[in-house]
Computed example of a mutant assay.
Amino acid sequence: MTIGGEVTSALLYLDDVSVTFDGFRALNRLSLSIGANEMRAIIGPNGAGKTTMMDVITGKTRPNTGTALFQARHDLTRLDEASISQLGIGRKFQTPTVFDMHTVEDNILLALKTDRRPFPVLFSKRTREEKERIDALLERVRLTASRHRSAGELSHGQKQWLEIGMLLAQEPKLLLVDEPAAGMTDQETADTADLLREIAKTASVVVVEHDMVFVRDLGVKVTCLHEGSVLAEGSLDAVSANERVIEVYLGR
């Protein structure tokens, strides 16, 4: 395989990726490049291909055609979901998935990047390194004061942060986040934007979002998808001024 400069400089490289379901083309020759420590916002109408794109990246869906490379050398189209996760790709779905009956601290402990089984993990003595790692993660996701609460008692926004913390415990190189601002208060939304900007200092982040105020708060490059392809790309102001984006997504 001949790898050009764009591929070698990208953490994630998608080129000419197409996915068809029963005659419906969910992705249509999609090309996208995400750099190391870059945060990118992905916007677009329902059915634009945003979820299918994440499914391809994480190995849930195999494309009919195209290239999907991670770190220029890992062919994501040939790997299963577990193998892709081990490479350092984490995904957060719109609805947070946490262990409601366990404490916030135990949720983070269960997610730490080691070979862990729930029973021995929860009832064995924690090492100094584990305690320090948990403390750092709880502080990072703004849940230090809630560490002994059960996860089920948290607000929706706090559960979102907890799940992000659990993903960070796996030390991902790329984090895919689906509509993190949905259902949050204004303050939680602002805090989430701050959190994602902090994460992007050490890992790449792809944020799929419909809330344009939140996207503006992120202050990052925006890619608008439509009918499985990139419709426009650039700053939010530039994308928002695109006539086709206005027509198919933003409206007037």
Rank of each mutant, 00 (worst) to 15 (best):
M1K: 14
M1T: 15
T2S: 13
T2Q: 14
T2D: 14
T2N: 15
I3G: 01
I3T: 11
G5P: 05
E6A: 13
E6F: 08
V7W: 06
V7E: 11
T8N: 10
S9F: 03
S9H: 08
S9K: 09
S9D: 10
S9P: 02
A10C: 14
L11A: 05
L12E: 02
L12N: 02
L12Q: 04
Y13Q: 01
Y13M: 03
L14C: 12
L14N: 00
L14Q: 01
L14T: 05
D15M: 04
D15K: 15
D16M: 00
V17T: 05
V17M: 06
V17F: 03
S18N: 10
S18Q: 03
T20G: 00
F21H: 14
F21C: 07
F21S: 10
D22H: 03
D22P: 02
D22G: 13
D22A: 11
F24H: 09
F24Y: 10
R25E: 05
A26M: 07
A26Q: 02
L27G: 08
L27W: 03
N28C: 11
N28Q: 12
N28A: 12
N28W: 09
N28D: 15
R29E: 12
R29H: 14
L30C: 12
S31W: 07
S31T: 14
L32E: 04
L32H: 03
L32D: 00
L32Q: 03
S33L: 03
I34M: 09
G35T: 10
G35N: 14
G35Y: 07
G35P: 02
N37C: 11
N37K: 14
N37V: 02
